[in-house]
Write a protein that binds this DNA or RNA. Structure first.
Lengths: 339, 339
DNA sequence: CTGAAAGCGCTTACAG
DNA sequence: CTGAAAGCGCTTACAG
């Protein structure tokens, strides 16, 4: 079955291929009658514009790129990324765009991917997450003039539209919830130190703790199960250990709750646990984990719309993510000695 | 920064653009010296072939398509799909191919996606999972002559290369493990009825149960948490309920273990639980769940290689997946009254 | 309103 | 070994 082209349609209808192109693209230059005939024949033949031909002549790939820059191990366990992919894909395809996906295990590969995609005219723009400390990506994107949207940064950026979150209120919420339960020594198991939102949460949580007059001890995990457990163990190995711990993601929180016995604590009797991300993991573990929940798919969809607007018009406004909501479950309880 | 084309290179070196193309593609027709000079200049300019131009002139998209045909809810919770995506992407990109992804919530949309991709010359082939009962996809793919590989079917298929699993041995393994623990009444919470491997597991498990002389009661879940819990509740609501249940996926097993109390049983004291899929979910829930584990990413990578071979040569041999391995954890224990 | 023509950036027979 | 030319399937000014 040969795939039909506009020449086949032109021949069948008896017009030029330009006329066919105009009709198919809903532009002027064709009589109403001819247009209808052309559309009819095109549908009959099952015609679809060749994506390559259209991209070549219109200088539009109709494709948006995303590099998932995490280790395969984190990608596999974090439901977060599949939600992002699903949210992006649905929005993009609704607008006739495709999603181009790549994995990158190190920053160098990620940068190289943007360069390659752009040189190959493979994408019209890119979406990025996880702004890092001294992040080389914004400069590269500006240099190459690749339309880009950052998503999940902690505040607006110069020159690149951003979908940002306010960590200030979340930090207040997290600390407030624990303080209300009587906790006065709080631990914080953080994400990778090179991520900007790790740094931001560190600061905001410290500020919130000071505002409430409680102690805060912080340590770095790396978003993995083992990293979270190790950091928790370190936090607990002091004279007056914290009675509650906030984890920067669900995986570390869940792993620590699952291994609480080995860590020498009961959750929540000895230790309350709160996760910054929510997922099925938090719901099925026992005790179920109190967590900040937000609609990742919807956020990704929003970011996709911003990028489409940027590609279309050359500008896009910053937007702010819906604040996360605290879902209270069984892992947070009154501090030991109160209850 | 204008993106360079082969014309720019040709001008800079002082040869025709055909010569540049030959040199860049490592074909004959250029002297060694000229070739080196061309490669040098191309690298200097950061030249990359326009993917659209190359696709148009070579009739190769260098892209492989995958439709994820599950509800967003299942996609989000099942780590399976991210592993598939990761495995595919790494293999494809290593061979200069891209992955084109789409979601489809119903079979009609999925078929339409293949038609569209093919008409748009967007993909050179597709990978499929989850062969269904009366599946319309093989016929469509053959009609359109789209190179395709099915992965995870239970046996070879006519006309389409397949990466298949042997459910026979796994069924024996599952039943054997439980019988060794003294179980004589076994339940089976199945996946969606329209999936071919659901039907196959149903038969194989029934055969294995007969071979071992034990009772088997089967009921349908739908791979979701609620579906799994409901099916388990039905299995347990009889006079002599099963003392062990096999779940067709990890999500249903984990949800049922998490809600065991509401289901009126203790796991594993009253009820042993075994999951057909393994993931972090099975590890973190308490008791941790005995499960069949296999390397999904590696399987996806293998399927990708088969498809690349099919695209390249027009043929690809069937292959068999590595058998799953039983990982024994705490959710399976001696039958009540034995211990 | 309509058509002939050039062009997007490559690849690839085909003559020299 | 090298170059001029046609072609892939579209889009889009430009003349009629």
């Amino acid at each position: 079955m040969r795939r039909p082209t506009i020449i086949d349609i032109a021949r069948a209808v008896g017009v030029s291929k330009a006329a066919v192109s105009y009709a198919l693209n809903g532009r002027g230059g064709v009589s109403q009658e001819t247009r209808e005939r052309i559309l009819e024949v095109a549908a009959e033949m099952g015609w679809r514009a060749s994506s390559a031909a259209r991209a070549l002549s219109s200088d539009r790939a109709a494709t948006v790129g995303v590099v998932l820059a995490r280790s395969p191990e984190v990608l596999r366990t974090e439901p977060f990324f599949m939600q992002v992919v699903a949210g992006l894909e649905q929005t993009l395809s609704a607008h006739g765009f495709s999603l181009q996906l790549a994995l990158a295990s190190d920053p160098g590969t990620e940068l190289e991917t943007y360069r390659r995609w752009w040189a190959e005219r493979r994408v019209d723009g890119v979406l990025l997450t996880d702004l890092r400390v001294d992040d080389p990506r914004p400069a590269l994107l500006r240099e190459l003039r690749i339309p880009a949207v950052f998503f999940g940064t902690e505040r607006p950026m110069a020159g690149i539209p951003v979908l940002w979150v306010d960590e200030h209120d979340i930090a207040d919420n997290a600390v407030g919830h624990l303080v209300d339960l009587g906790h006065r020594r709080i631990g914080h198991v953080q994400g990778p130190g090179q991520l900007r939102h790790t740094a931001r949460r560190e600061r905001e949580l410290r500020r919130a703790a000071e505002d409430s007059g409680v102690d805060l001890v912080q340590d770095h995990g790396d978003y993995t199960e083992d990293g979270g457990i190790a950091a928790t163990a370190r936090l607990l190995a002091v004279e007056a250990p914290p009675t509650a711990v906030i984890f920067d993601n669900d995986v570390m929180a869940v792993a620590s709750v699952a291994r609480a016995e080995e860590l020498g604590v009961r959750v929540p009797a000895d230790l309350s646990v709160l996760a910054w991300d929510d997922s099925m993991l938090c719901r099925v573990v026992r005790p179920a984990i109190t967590a900040f929940s937000h609609d990742v798919g919807a956020a990704a969809a929003r970011a996709a719309l911003m990028l489409l607007e940027l590609i279309e018009t050359g500008v896009a406004d910053d937007a702010r993510l819906q604040p996360r909501e605290l879902v209270t479950r069984d892992s947070t309880a009154p501090a030991p000695g109160l209850g």
